[in-house]
């Protein structure tokens, strides 16, 4: 639909703007807008839980954490090294183009890889025939949860989720340690 294309265009504009901006606080704010637009797109594609995570983590927590990091460092990005300072200025200029080429090439290969994929939400696709029917039929009698996603995350892959929670808990402790150092001098 038209809205999808407009929103995707906005997302690209936000991404480019937040990377190219020298004022890092403005960059963080644009990233917040980026997350809100992405959440809108996720919701429009019916992945409501992903959209919730994107809005809460991307627009909420990440903005606060990045601002906390900014308050302990500097707000303005320093100018990158000027090409004239190196011995071969043209070499530096070419070296800057190499990452762009690598990214374009990888993107082209990935798009080429999607050509063989089955259509979106095709019921006969291999991904929908492997374990999905089992979850659809058995998850309610086996786990008692009426939501497949909850049943898979909290019951069938419970240990996996426990590991993820451990990782996130450790990361949270590290962030708290880094941010609290100020109060002890």
């Amino acid at each position: 639909m038209v809205i999808d294309f407009i929103l995707l265009f906005f997302v690209v504009v936000c991404a480019v703007a937040s990377v190219s901006m020298k004022d890092l606080l403005g960059s963080v704010m644009i990233l917040g807008a980026y997350s809100l637009l992405m959440a809108l797109l996720w919701t429009r594609y019916n992945s409501v839980d992903v959209a919730f995570t994107e809005a809460a983590v991307g627009a909420g927590i990440t903005t606060v954490l990045l601002i906390a990091a900014l308050s302990r460092t500097f707000r303005h990005e320093e100018d990158p090294e000027k090409p004239g300072q190196s011995i071969f200025p043209w070499l530096t200029r070419i070296a800057r183009l190499i990452p762009l080429g690598v990214v374009m090439l990888t993107g082209a290969v990935l798009i080429y890889g999607t050509l063989d994929m089955p259509n979106f939400s095709d019921p006969a696709a291999p991904a929908n025939l492997h374990v999905a029917p089992y979850y659809i039929e058995k998850s309610v009698p086996e786990t008692g949860s009426i939501n497949f996603v909850t049943a898979i995350l909290a019951s069938y892959r419970g240990y996996d989720t426990l590991g993820e929670v451990t990782v996130i808990f450790t990361a949270g402790i590290c962030v708290l340690i880094l941010l609290r150092r100020r109060f002890h001098g």
Binding site: M29, T43, A55, G60, T63, I67, A68, L70, S71, F183
Partner: peptide, 27 residues
């Protein structure tokens, strides 16, 4: 309902940004 929750989430970033601009930190 989801839209209402987004309206609540929307406040967090604005408050953090304005607090940073007022005090130079989040403390």
């Amino acid at each position: 309902d989801i839209a209402l929750v987004y309206a609540l989430i929307n406040f967090i970033a604005t408050i953090a940004i304005l607090k940073y601009s007022e005090t130079g930190g989040l403390g």
